[in-house]
Design a protein around this nucleic acid. Structure first.
Lengths: 337, 337
DNA sequence: TTTTAGCACTCTTTAGGTATGATTGCTAAC
DNA sequence: GTTAGCAATCATACCTAAAGAGTGCTAAAA
């Protein structure tokens, strides 16, 4: 347990380092953070904090930088989760008033807004398939050999995909397909489509395998594909001093380009709505130099997808978390102005 | 006009520099390019080529690198447009056999294939709106306050968008809308939708402005939005030595992140199906360190969109152009195996 | 007991200086 | 027209020295 002054020193070092990206000296703290002690006293505290693992040095006579344990303590105990200015509130409000017709668009809009306010790169992904129920499936004939399947889910999402056939299909066939699919799938989780649909649809529809088969194939593909990741503000990260190391920059581009990595990242455990992963807390080796904050995006209890912020370990956690909390409140109508 | 030996020297320098990214010395050419002259002779030729502007030096006693004029001459006169191996042919063939149901998917697939074979970053965009005719518009009711508009174009593309209303709409209304839109828009270029639709639809449908207005708004938005750019292999560029310059790397990420820039790039003048822009030949200052090869992708006379390759000026033009030409032939069934 | 002044020590950063090696341009010979 | 030979040029790597920032520790002050 840290005493009060140690906490203040740690907080000051974390925040100073977030601002400057330079190791923080004992002298800097006495001047700018109202710690009314001599630099020698601060040095003693810093030595203690280092011994307990909250701070690191880059070399023997350098100033201190926060360790991952230090960041973790800061995020858990010292953060200001209301670090948001009037201007930012106004900007966010105006952005969120934009009318969107699809839920995925709202997720993207939110991600873009977060990226703009925090100046970090954001990733977003739509709601997970296993948390959505199929409300209805519609099949619309678009031509003699082409139909469109439209899947409506309970959280208001619409997924559509096109199916082409090698032979003509009739309106009657489409109607039958429509009936059967709804019969079997209505109310089930979207995830069901990924399973062995053939087995229990073929039985009853064996008379039209060449119609049913491409449909199943295609909607499976569409469902899988729909877990697409949206990326915003990749260039913003490149202005950060961390990215002067080519290795870090390269790693970053690689991470963003590796879709599986990002999916894992966005889908990893959600104890809370906001989760913070600092450096090596990330499961993937490639992410050891980055911090990620994920934000499970909800209105009421409708899942709207997940937004992730990726930035240096020296991320402005207070700002990021404050913005996320504000947006969450705003979208749920819990704002007392 | 260059004499034969000068051409050979220029070609050797361009190709050597493309391979090594290092200034090419006179000595290197006598050894590896079968130019059976002494290095002094080559030096004389190099001095002449430099005087005529085809080569540059990085400093007084360095080897030569191609100037933009040198690359241009190489692309126009010296290129080998059949620089493609059996393995590459096999790989491309297998990729292009993948079944895709939407034309945009074919463009993406092609872009991905090019990226994989050439190891450069590719951008792609679907067919231009003004080159597609509206074949049919379908309106499908998805709920009491939600419909979907599906636009079919003559080149086989399908665009769909969802429209939500503040009040219930009836099947009858949807039917009327369906009739009116098809009446007015069938056979017109997709671009028409961007124009002042209101004027000539409102006249005849003034009785239901609150139905028509959101529809027009939304399909306009959808058409505009649909000119989306697909990006593949951004991380590949980072392995190139050019990207050891942080300024170049940063510029690159900025370019990729700036959608307008990429759109302009993909839509700029098409004298031929394949266009090459070298360094400052690009209209945008930001692209001065890059070369871009655009490829107007067609099957028969159906426009399938545009694919662009972005890489360093030291791009392997022969490979890139060979691959594009091969794919073009393949998709048009003009391959004699 | 806590805080602070003072100072030696450590390490980074910058600048300058030198040697090395690659490559050219030029001259004169082939 | 071609080539050998050689001085001149410049990048690169490596070394050293000096300056500056910051710490750790000791002993004195509060």
């Amino acid at each position: 347990m840290l005493d009060d002054r140690k906490k203040r020193v740690l907080q000051a070092i974390v925040e100073e380092y977030i601002n400057t990206a330079e190791p923080v000296s004992s002298n800097a703290l006495t001047k700018s953070y109202g710690l009314n002690y001599s630099s020698a006293t601060i040095r003693n505290e810093m030595a203690d904090l280092e011994k307990s693992g909250y701070l690191d040095k880059t070399h023997t006579s350098s100033g201190r930088i926060p360790s991952e344990k230090g960041y973790r303590y800061y995020v858990d105990e010292l953060i200001n989760d209301n670090d948001i200015s009037i201007e930012e509130i106004k900007y966010i409000s105006s952005k969120l008033e934009t009318k969107v017709n699809e839920i995925e668009d709202l997720t993207k809009l939110t991600a873009t807004t977060i990226s703009e306010v925090t100046h970090y790169t954001t990733l977003s992904i739509g709601p997970k398939n296993d948390e959505q129920l199929i409300e209805e499936i519609k099949f619309v004939q678009l031509g003699s050999r082409m139909i469109m399947a439209v899947i409506l889910t309970d959280n208001g999402l619409v997924k559509e995909t096109i199916i082409k056939f090698d032979e003509d299909i009739t309106a009657k066939q489409v109607e039958t397909v429509n009936y059967m699919f709804n019969q079997k799938l209505k109310g089930k989780p979207l995830e069901t489509i990924k399973g062995p649909l053939e087995d229990y649809l073929f039985d009853e529809m064996s008379y039209s395998v060449n119609v049913i088969k491409p449909i199943i194939e295609q909607i499976k593909k569409a469902i899988a594909e729909d877990e697409k990741i949206f990326l915003e503000g990749a260039n913003k990260s490149f202005d950060l001093p961390e990215f002067n190391s080519l290795e870090v920059a390269k790693n970053f581009v690689n991470v963003l380009d590796t879709k599986e990595l990002m999916e894992d990242m966005l889908n990893s455990g959600f104890a809370q709505d906001i989760n913070v992963y600092i450096g090596n807390e990330n499961e993937k080796e490639e992410l050891k130099d980055f911090s990620i904050v994920t934000f499970k995006h909800k209105v009421g209890n409708k899942d709207l997808g997940t937004i992730g912020i990726i930035g240096p370990k020296r991320m402005d956690y207070s700002k990021v978390i404050s913005v996320m909390k504000y947006i969450s409140k705003k979208l749920n109508g819990n704002i007392e102005e």
